[in-house]
């Protein structure tokens, strides 16, 4: 049996009193050993900030294991389109087929004007060796690949902007059945 999916619709502009009533952007406490900060902005095709967006992350733990109780976060964008997470750097992920994924986060971005979320990945600029061998990154052209790399901006801090459209448009993914 295969049931047809329920279509996606935009979150619209009025979600934060429901989706963001509980803080969820600090996966670990700031200052905790191993804590990193990820800061960025969600930008539209004119380079303008998206002030009514929401970013969700999903990541492995520091040892590279996915654990349903750790690794999810959510942050609304502010008036300047900015979002920020405090988390740990995920470890490299060993796949069942023996391949190894470089440390990365999955991101879903929602906003008014996005009828379905965009799915992307954040890799770390200081993991050049792991990135070069990553089974996803190495299958993306060099210029586009750069849009997925967060740059170290200060010790323990990374910068990652998501450009929905136009110059420097971020690479967005889809999966076989999700319709993303």
């Amino acid at each position: 049996m295969s049931l047809p999916r329920t279509p996606a619709q935009t979150v619209g502009p009025f979600f934060d009193f429901a989706l963001c009533a509980r803080p969820a952007s600090e996966l670990v406490a700031p200052g905790e050993a191993g804590a990193i900060r990820i800061e960025g902005a969600l930008l539209d095709g004119a380079g303008a900030p998206v002030p009514d967006g929401i970013v969700e992350i999903w990541q492995a733990d520091a040892s590279g294991h996915y654990d349903s109780a750790f690794g999810w976060g959510r942050c609304p964008t502010d008036g300047a389109g900015r979002f920020a997470f405090t988390t740990v750097k995920p470890g490299a992920v060993q796949e069942p087929d023996g391949s190894v994924q470089a440390p990365h986060l999955s991101l879903l971005c929602f906003s008014r004007g996005l009828l379905k979320p965009v799915l992307t990945r954040l890799y770390f600029g200081d993991e050049a060796e792991a990135n070069a061998a990553d089974p996803v990154l190495r299958r993306i052209g060099a210029e586009q690949r750069e849009t997925l790399i967060a740059q170290l901006s200060a010790p323990g801090s990374y910068r990652f902007d998501v450009r929905l459209q136009g110059d420097g448009e971020t690479v967005f993914f889809t999966t076989p059945a999700s319709g993303l």
């Binding site: 004119a46 303008a48 996005l114 929905l164 459209q165 690479v171 993914f173």
Partner: peptide, 9 residues
């Protein structure tokens, strides 16, 4: 202005 224009991967 918020729709990606490049193909999805």
């Amino acid at each position: 202005l918020r729709s990606p224009r490049r193909p999805l991967l």
